[in-house]
């Protein structure tokens, strides 16, 4: 008598394929697709799912968390300034107040709890998956509106050119959140298609860019919300080093902005059984 139940290899394979296919089929259409599973994307995902939204996060790496695991200089102590420590309270992450309004915790603890909370709330993660393009539809006002993303397995991009005729796949959503960090991949795609004219980076007279990043979080194009460090790229705000407080609060703002959009969408109802909070 072995330790584990007797299960054949083929049953294991079928379980993997069937379950993945069933879930993938379900998420061919979702409320919100979040591109990028760094701190702001994860926070937004957790909040949205808690409020009853059907959320899929796509992440190009096999691991989730992006730069959340380590802080500056690859040291895994991360700092947040008040009031962002309240987000750590919400996640149940312990921290220390090292000086008035300045808090430290560890990357692994904060990151793992943020991922766990998103999973617990019902977020679907599609990792090793690269964002390739947006799906455009005509909105109710006749103007183009982003209504999903085109994606492919990340390794396809690394294949030699002659064998990359491996077409991507499109998935639809009511909203897309660009949480792709400095690259701002989703908005950059819209710019490349001539749909927006982004300011680019030119130094402004900014000495407090964390506030500006949080407050610029929101709808940047019909159907697209920008969150986290991507905000700095899209609005031409100064690039910053690791600033987790701004990322956490930006993620919360992105979720709030997405919920406001969803609630204004005809026919949208929060999912039953979701851990909806007030």
């Amino acid at each position: 008598m072995g330790l584990f139940a007797k299960v054949g290899e083929k049953e294991i394979s079928r379980a993997i394929v069937d379950e993945f296919a069933r879930e993938f089929n379900d998420y061919a259409e979702s409320d919100v697709i979040i591109v990028g599973a760094g701190p702001s994307g994860l926070i937004a995902a957790g909040d949205l799912a808690a409020a009853g939204a059907k959320v899929m996060v796509i992440e190009t790496n096999n691991y989730l968390g992006g730069g959340y695991w380590v802080g500056g200089f690859m040291m895994n102590t991360i700092t947040v300034r008040a009031p962002a420590h309240k987000v750590l309270d919400e996640l149940g992450v312990p921290y220390k107040e090292v000086s008035s309004g300045l808090f430290t915790t560890t990357g692994p603890h904060a990151c793992s709890k943020t991922i766990a909370r998103a999973c617990d709330n019902g977020v679907k993660f599609q990792n090793v998956t690269r964002f390739e393009d947006v799906v455009l539809r005509s909105g109710i006002d006749g103007q183009p509106r982003v209504a999903g993303v085109v994606m492919n397995w990340s390794p396809v991009a690394a294949l030699p050119h002659e064998i990359t005729c491996m077409d991507p796949i499109a998935v639809e959503s009511r909203l897309v959140i660009d949480a792709t960090g400095h690259d701002a991949c989703v908005m950059a795609k819209l710019r490349d298609n001539g749909l927006v004219d982004l300011p680019g980076h030119e130094s402004m007279w900014v000495e407090r860019s964390e506030d500006l990043i949080v407050e610029h979080t929101g709808v940047a194009y019909p159907g697209v919300i920008v969150s986290g460090m991507a905000v700095a790229t899209v609005y031409g705000l100064p690039r910053m080093g690791p600033t987790f407080g701004a990322m956490l609060l930006s993620g919360k703002r992105a979720a709030a902005a997405a919920l406001e959009e969803l609630r204004a969408t005809a026919g949208w109802k929060p999912r039953i059984g979701a851990k909806a909070r007030a």
Partner: peptide
């Protein structure tokens, strides 16, 4: 000078 995009107006 560029024309402001949606996000700038919303801000």
């Amino acid at each position: 000078r560029r024309r402001p995009f949606e996000g700038e107006i919303q801000f």
